[in-house]
Design a protein around this nucleic acid. Structure first.
Lengths: 116, 116
DNA sequence: AACCGGTATGTTTTTTGAAACATACCTGAA
DNA sequence: TTCAGGTATGTTTCAAAAAACATACCGGTT
């Protein structure tokens, strides 16, 4: 099997759309995971390189794009409040990774056949 | 078949990587096509909403990432010069679209099964 | 009722990528 | 040998996105 040219592979990005546009991509999924880990948007945003404002807006956007909210926010009270990932959120995370994995496998197979 | 939630679909982007990184995505492919149509980088860049500088740089990048150049440039002479898509370039365009089509089919199938 | 720490939101500043501008070079044809 | 029109490349301007800053609100706890 002599390789006369370069090796190529396929790169990709996927995201989930709902009827009115973008719903969930890797950025939002990562944010969800960080919220789950840290218990608040503030701490999640610190854990990533992201401003609170931006993280908060992302949560807002994905919640309103979703049939059921992916993040539940708590205002005031003990510790000032916080945020948690809902059951719907957990399902969305799992689904996204499952889809990504499948597309990865598929595109890897395609990539292996590339000859240029 | 009663639909209790929203309809979802999968969006995606693919590109071809060679050993040292990005090689060809939809932006470069569109540029190639415009160069083929217009015969020069200048006119291709005008046809798209793109500065000559950027288009020229894209050609430079993809040519140097490729085993064989995808665009052949002519300096001076009749009409001041120009650019044409090589045989290798045409092959790359075709390949990209073929791959994209396959991934599209695949992800559409996945998308149809989404229930959230 | 004062405190704490997170949410919510408006305003200003900074960054940075893109576009615009400018100019030199190249070469066949007239 | 000048002209035309595209390539090649440096410099400056501009605009959009991101970050930074500032401040009000919220509600258990003490």
């Amino acid at each position: 099997m002599n390789q006369t040219t370069k090796n190529y592979s396929i790169g990709f990005r996927i995201w989930i759309n709902e009827e009115h546009g973008h719903f969930l991509g890797i950025g939002r999924v990562k944010l969800l995971e960080n919220i789950r880990e840290t218990g608040s948007i503030t701490n999640a945003s610190k854990a990533m390189k992201m401003s609170y404002r931006q993280a908060w807006q992302m949560v807002e956007d994905m919640n309103s794009a979703s049939a059921k909210p992916l993040v539940e926010k708590m205002l005031g009270g003990k510790g000032g409040g916080g945020a948690r990932v809902t059951e719907a959120g957990e399902k969305a995370i799992k689904l996204f990774y499952k889809l990504e994995e499948k597309v990865k496998k598929f595109s890897n197979e395609l990539g292996n056949k590339i000859r240029l």
